[in-house]
Design a protein around this nucleic acid. Structure first.
Lengths: 209, 209
DNA sequence: TATTTATCGTAACCAATACTCACAATAACT
DNA sequence: AGTTATTGTGAGTATTGGTTACGATAAATA
């Protein structure tokens, strides 16, 4: 077992690829495959086989020379590394079109996440039932998140209120935020943020057209 | 004017930051500000001022020593660089929860994009009116995209059909794809893809929790 | 059993590059 | 005229990201 497992100096870019590997492997498993190789996986993902082997080797030797990788086993190991071998409770703030689409999305459950509560401050939305929970007022946010010890939240509110929502989330212990609001958030160093802004993503491509 | 403007060897990572600068600058303008500095912008975005100046210098000198950057002018210039000083027609494939949320999203118009047609293959969705267009059958995809010369598409269909949809889009000339389906797409080198998978983004953070 | 083929894990290497630092140049303000 | 603020960029550095190569191992085959 490599010593650097604990030292946590593994490049972010490597961590960033692991979920993609995991997704592809899960899909392979769904297709009925039991074994794969770094070559095959690389081909599917447009990544060199060496890169994949090196990335994985940061966390241990998951394969067998001559044979390849047992898919089920590798999936299990990657889930452990990414800490998604458990189910995380997630709070969702904002019940607009996007918030509701996220609430309906069926893809969270089997990949490690479960939306357990949803907040909005619009009177006509509060109290509405959606999936199996009720939309709660923003004022209950602190209480609920503290009680359930929620560490992950998704922000789907307008840009104007996003920073304030983030501040409140962080104050009560949230450490990871998936931000759909088209604005940069200022957060302490120990809080992680991922941004999803379709326009930014589109604008990253138009340059090359 | 630097000579390397044309040579197009500007690192992707730099291009990737420009939309974020643009977004922050637009916001500053909305707040009524007229001038800003690399320091201020950097502080807002958590980036060093030197980095911002260097990024911008790839494309020309947009600021004034001693004064800073005229926000309106810099916005205009960045839009030009990113080619979003025009409005791009975008096709949207998939009219599920997510597709409909995207169709309703008001944030595209003023940032360079306009969804002009929407496709689905479910009989009960085809023909439905949504915003100001009618959901069309997938079989019309080629015709419409060719006619309108659409270069950008968003994919919001299940993983199973995403690759096939991508293939059809590419065949009729689409060069940029924003893929919401949780699967990797195989595309030719001249086609650009950006991925949005909330679960992948969440899994990139759980590692650090 | 010996040989061939497939594949992993990793050491060594290389090159890109990403970012910082420092400073001259310039503008505005006092 | 002097002070302060700020840009644009040249130089330098460290990172690091990725490739290549190869020994080790496993399975298949002759």
């Amino acid at each position: 077992m490599p010593s650097h497992i604990l030292s946590s100096n593994i490049p972010d870019i490597v961590i960033g690829r692991l979920p993609v590997y995991l997704r592809a492997l899960t899909r392979l498993a769904q297709e009925g495959r039991e074994v794969t190789s770094s070559h095959e996986l690389g081909q599917r993902l447009g990544i060199s086989s060496a890169q994949i082997r090196k990335d994985l080797s940061h966390f241990g030797g998951f394969g067998k020379q001559g044979t390849g990788y047992q898919i089920a086993y590798l999936v299990e190991q990657l889930k452990q590394v990414l800490k998604v071998d458990q189910e995380w409770d997630v709070a969702l703030v904002g019940a607009g079109d996007l918030g509701r689409a996220l609430a309906h999305y069926r893809g969270f459950g089997d990949r490690g996440f479960r939306i357990v509560s949803m907040f909005d401050n619009s009177p006509d939305k509060i109290g509405t039932e959606l999936e199996n929970f009720v939309i709660q007022p923003l004022d209950d946010l602190a209480k609920v998140i503290r009680e359930r010890n929620i560490k992950i939240a998704m922000i789907a509110v307008p840009a104007e209120s996003a920073q304030e929502v983030a501040d409140r989330l962080i104050e009560v212990g949230v450490k990871a935020i998936l931000n759909y609001a088209p604005i940069n958030l200022n957060v302490p160093a120990d809080v992680h943020v991922q941004y999803i802004d379709p326009v930014v993503h589109l604008q990253r491509m138009t340059y090359y057209l």
